[in-house]
């Protein structure tokens, strides 16, 4: 290993309403706890994209910032395509995910064109979904919080998982998986709360550089806390605990 793992956080000022940018910090800490040096690199313009990128985190923002965020992301569209085809893990949350789609339909009928990197589009819902969400995925049961006013259509063929409680994409599924890109409505520190998903992302990143991953002692302590937090929500929703 000649250089630390480079985890980039895209537009951490515009796309971080719910603390989703923290997922970059979570990945970096889990790498460090496993003895692997890692840096979080905030990227606000295309010029700030570093030469080596090992993982990418895009958070969720305000609707009034959709166009300005899209316009900046558009200048990185070529980078995003290179990363997704090269197998770099990309986690995109909420509006950050929507902006990578074909487009976002707003309540007033206007459409904001997306970057067209992933299939599907965001369409208005009758009512905002603001609640705990539980999803069965191949990375284990994911528990988080959703707060969005749009469904996602066109991801039915490759969702992140099936909704057990909450709304998700709107038709029983939640999120999207396209290669190593994951889109989700689970906002905030979804990777801290769901270590199974975090380690999947981290392993994907480390596999490209030929490194093994063995969670550290502090990782286990953090994951016990996360499990207790998830179980608290499971109990409230009368779902079985872990």
């Amino acid at each position: 290993m000649t250089r630390p793992l480079a985890i980039i956080s895209l537009l951490p000022d515009l796309l971080n309403t719910n603390g989703d940018a923290a997922n970059a910090r979570v990945l970096a800490q889990r790498a460090r706890w496993a003895g692997i040096p890692a840096n979080v690199i905030d990227v606000r313009t295309a010029g700030e994209v570093p030469e080596h990128v090992d993982a990418v985190v895009i958070g969720s923002g305000s609707d009034s910032d959709l166009i300005s965020a899209r316009d900046i992301l558009a200048t990185m569209a070529a980078d995003l395509r290179v990363w997704t085809t090269a197998g770099v893990p990309v986690l995109a949350v909420g509006t950050g995910w929507e902006l990578l789609s074909w487009g976002i339909e707003l309540g007033d009928g206007t459409v904001i064109e997306g970057l067209g990197i992933v299939a599907g589009r965001a369409v208005p819902m009758q009512e905002r979904a603001t609640d705990d969400i539980v999803v069965d995925s191949r990375h284990g049961r994911l528990i988080g919080f959703e707060n969005h006013a749009r469904n996602y259509v066109g991801a039915e063929a490759s969702p992140l998982g099936q909704v057990r409680a909450g709304t998700g994409n709107g038709a029983g599924t939640e999120g999207l998986v396209m290669g190593t890109l994951i889109g989700t409505h689970l906002h905030g520190p979804v990777l801290a709360r769901n270590p199974g998903l975090a380690d999947h992302v981290l392993r994907t990143a480390l596999a490209r550089t030929g490194q093994d991953y063995l969670p550290g002692v502090r990782t286990h302590a953090a994951d016990d806390i996360a499990k207790a937090a998830r179980n608290q929500i499971a109990v409230r929703l009368t779902l079985p605990t872990e």
Binding site: G19, A21, A22, F145, N147, G188, P189
Partner: peptide
């Protein structure tokens, strides 16, 4: 209600 927003 949602502690996510303290994460920044």
């Amino acid at each position: 209600r949602d502690p996510s927003y303290f994460w920044p």
